[in-house]
Amino acid sequence: MRSKRDKLFLLSLLPLSLSLLAILIISIITMVLKSVDALQRFGFQLFASSGWSPENEAYGLLAPIVGSLTVSALAVLTALIFSLPLTIMIAEYLQGIVRGVVSSIVELMGGLPTIVYAVWASQYLVPLLKQFLMEPLHSALPFIPLFSCRPVTGFSILAAGISIGISTVPYVTALTLEAYQSIPSIYREACYGIGATRYESIKIMISLAKPAIVASLILGFARALGETTIAAVTVGNSMYLSSCLFAPGYTVAALIASQFADAYLYPYAESVLYVSILIVVLISVALSFYGSTTMIRWRSRIIV
């Protein structure tokens, strides 16, 4: 039931609101159309090899795609290791002003321009990781393929993963904290009611929040996948696909950052880069949707 004025109001909102839809559609069409050339020319070969030499028209996206996935996986792992304790700390242990300060810091971290993370990571974190993580791991466990190479500069898949991971901590923490705090207090009271210690009660709470935590990690993965600045500065930019985490590599975003500006000069180069970003966009959008619907479904089930 809607009066004429309500309809006019709706109509007056439409043109500008629909611009969002237009932007999305135009973006997708552009990416698809631009990708077609390279896909027709190279086909599956594009994903089965690694290489970037526009002069010889030889392209392979295997290394950056594998690199993107590995870096994002490492980032999510890093984010998990720090986010979960931070969530528990804020939700269960801290109170009053301290709690306010810590959650403000987390919030502050969340909106920090990634370029600032990139500067700090490249100048402080990477050398630190090289000296205290990569070199000890390499000398202690050189027979494990992941640790088999000697870290030369430190700029590597691992460095990018951990750097992006640290920048993702606030995002994942915000999501898990929100989920954790939305668990109705009756559950916690029930835990204490049966004589559970704090550890035991937290264990139960975490198991209740598990689907939401997994969803947060999926959303974190999607975000890490598209991260450009930190990746470009820490990953080492090498097309060589290695099983070792200490070797320099590429991510799709880092490849684009360094090659796209000149790509229009060569046939297919631009199109190949569009193929690579199309894959990242598809994975990222799909994971985001999966993650957010999982989160919504979990919330509707946990809140009674």
Binding site: S17, L18, L24, T30, A222, G226, A253, Y274, I277, F289
Partner: peptide, 25 residues
């Protein structure tokens, strides 16, 4: 309204497109 539901979903999708892709487009 259907349009609202679509716009909401579009905003979510736009948010998950990597910024470098926007730069290319």
């Amino acid at each position: 309204n259907t349009v609202s539901i679509i716009i909401d979903a579009v905003a979510k999708s736009l948010a998950s497109i990597p910024t470098i892709a926007v730069s290319m487009i």
